[in-house]
Design a protein around this nucleic acid. Structure first.
Lengths: 154, 154
DNA sequence: TATTGTTATACTCTATAACTATA
DNA sequence: TATAGTTATAGAGTATAACAATA
């Protein structure tokens, strides 16, 4: 390759590198791809993992409640729960009070799977924490949570 | 609403709230939606903004070079540049050395538009920085850039 | 042989609107 | 009337594979 190749050297990112939005996007993409590498064989995406955790921690809630907690539309929950049901991880039980809705629970298989999955996710998380200095993780999470809370979304 | 409504109280997020990956995803979503609110009338998404900045800072580069800098496949650049060309912001000029490729430049209109756009984006950025304490922005960007650099992607 | 731009294609994620059965 | 789950649909965003022109 000659030095005159227009794609050989790195580009000037200008303002991009000083924008939180851009840095967030890149970092989130890194985490997303890394999560996929870590959990693809289990068939679990970050979104499905979120559903599993919320159902595990809040058994008996409706699809709509889970969707709201995740910040998604309830229509997006249908295929998510479908997939988790097909994998025998989550179960739709008829709600007792309200015959319109389902109560979501982990299956017995889902409970066991959950432990293995969390272990895998924590491994993945720790691997990426390697570049952080002591105390920076808590600070990072604190900052990110403030950025989320600061949005006038409701 | 009765206190027994299963969707009335907030859910337990368990491990999610301590996972950098989850916090990144939520924060990035907040920024994305906020960016859209700020720039929708200009017809510019975060992705298109990235292309504009890179072309502005690196005039004459090829689509492939821009795509690589953004971490995207070059096929994704086609419709992006198409849209920017339709808006008279970016121009494909035949490359002098290599007749396979185009050299990308901002149009005269694109240059003027760019200044207005950057002003808007900085406004949006400053609004979201409101929840940060002095020095936290630089630290946040430093941490995020380390998280990106730490990924074995190449 | 390898690369650029392109097209076709597909897959994920997500949102909206409308339907049904309930409430 | 309003709500829960569902369906159909559509729009981004992104990726792969293959092609023509060119290197």
């Amino acid at each position: 390759m000659a030095a005159s190749d227009s794609h050989a050297d790195s580009l000037d990112f200008g303002i991009l590198h000083e924008l939180i939005g851009y840095r967030l996007r890149r970092a989130q993409l890194v985490f997303f791809n890394s999560f996929a590498d870590a959990c693809n064989d289990l068939g679990i995406s970050p979104g499905l993992f979120g559903v599993l955790v919320l159902v595990k921690q809040n058994p008996g809630r409706t699809q709509t409640a889970i969707a709201q907690a995740m910040g998604n539309d309830r229509s997006a929950m249908v295929s998510a729960v479908d997939r988790l049901e097909k994998k025998d991880l989550v179960e739709r039980r008829p709600s007792q009070n309200d015959r319109r809705s389902y109560a979501l629970y982990l299956t017995a298989n889902g409970e066991a799977f959950y432990d293995r999955l969390v272990e895998r996710v924590l491994q993945h998380e720790h691997a990426l924490e390697g570049v952080l200095r002591p105390g920076e993780k808590d600070l990072l999470i604190d900052i990110l949570s403030r950025l989320c809370a600061g949005s006038a979304k409701g």
